[in-house]
Design a protein around this nucleic acid. Structure first.
Length: 277
DNA sequence: ATATTCCCCTGGAAGC
DNA sequence: TGCTTCCAGGGGAATA
């Protein structure tokens, strides 16, 4: 489900509603996520502590509990957070429950259980969590440029679609926004990454930023599972130009070509064979 | 190093 | 109304 715009949407909602709350208790109903949840370490990082803030790195959300206590949260494909009134009956996929000092409960809900809840202790003067060490640049950071991307892409013989999905090349893109950005930049998803020149990398960086910013303004994309803390859905799905639009007329060249779906690395890619070269 | 395939898991939609 | 098959915003491992 969640790529950078969805995770950032959740981060903003969490920041606005959870900062300052204290965790009075924590329950793990099912620790079997992508990696098993270390329940004792998670309690040590959360219980009795105050939520100080939320940061985002790529698709990872980082909840800060002070004193170097951090919880890394990843939504996988189907993860959501619920912020619920006291006594709300527990749902079948609400695997982790933080009970807050105002009586409300903050719950991690993830039917497919591809998500992550990882307690982390940061050393006082150390770097960030090691889980984040392999992540590439943030696409919305001004430091990320066409030159940076060009430098990465020329190193690999993979297709540009696969390279952009690689979180060490750039952090936060997933299947939807890679397809959308390649469409906006007019680049074929089948093109070998190393064959894309500097000028087209400039265009690609701009396209990625445009698509991400546009999606952010609309609260992300909800196709199936995604919703923010209060259950509200993203409004970007209707603005998708190629993703999930197989056989539709191309939004740029109209009837000259229809959107095509192909499979790369077992995942769908949508593109216009006429506009994207 | 890279491409390919498969795996983790559940649920919804589509096809018969 | 079933039942089966396919598909899904992620990530990683095993194989060739």
């Amino acid at each position: 489900m969640p790529e950078l715009p969805e995770v950032e949407t959740v981060r903003r909602a969490a920041e606005a509603t959870l900062v300052g709350r204290r965790v009075v208790a924590l329950a793990v109903r099912n620790p079997q996520l992508r990696r098993p949840v270390d329940i004792e370490a998670l309690k040590a990082n959360c219980v009795g502590r105050e939520i100080r803030g939320f940061r985002r790195r790529g698709k990872c959300l980082l909840a800060d509990f002070g004193d170097g206590c951090v919880v890394l949260l990843h939504l996988g494909m189907s993860g959501r957070f619920h912020l619920l009134a006291p006594e709300t009956p527990i749902g079948p996929h609400e695997h982790v429950v933080w009970m807050l000092d105002d009586g409300r409960e903050w719950r991690f809900h993830d039917p497919r259980r591809f998500g992550l809840v990882v307690p982390i202790r940061l050393p006082p003067h150390g770097n960030g969590p090691p889980e984040l060490a392999s992540l590439g640049p943030e696409p919305l950071d001004p430091a990320w440029s066409g030159a940076t991307l060009h430098c990465e892409l020329r190193k690999t013989r993979r297709t540009v679609k696969l390279a952009l999905l690689d979180q060490s090349v750039v952090a936060g893109l997933g299947n939807i926004y890679v397809c959308e950005a390649l469409f906006e930049a007019g680049i074929s998803p089948k093109r070998a990454a190393y064959r894309i020149g500097g000028a087209r990398c400039d265009r690609l960086v701009e396209a990625v930023r445009n698509v991400l910013n546009d999606a952010l303004e609309h609260g992300g994309t909800s196709l199936r599972d995604f919703a923010s803390l209060d259950g509200s859905e993203g409004r970007f799905a209707v603005r998708l130009r190629v993703y999930n639009r197989e056989s539709a007329p191309c939004p740029r060249c109209g009837e000259r070509a229809r959107i095509r779906r192909i499979v790369q690395q077992n995942r769908s890619t949508y593109y216009c064979p006429n506009c994207q070269t």
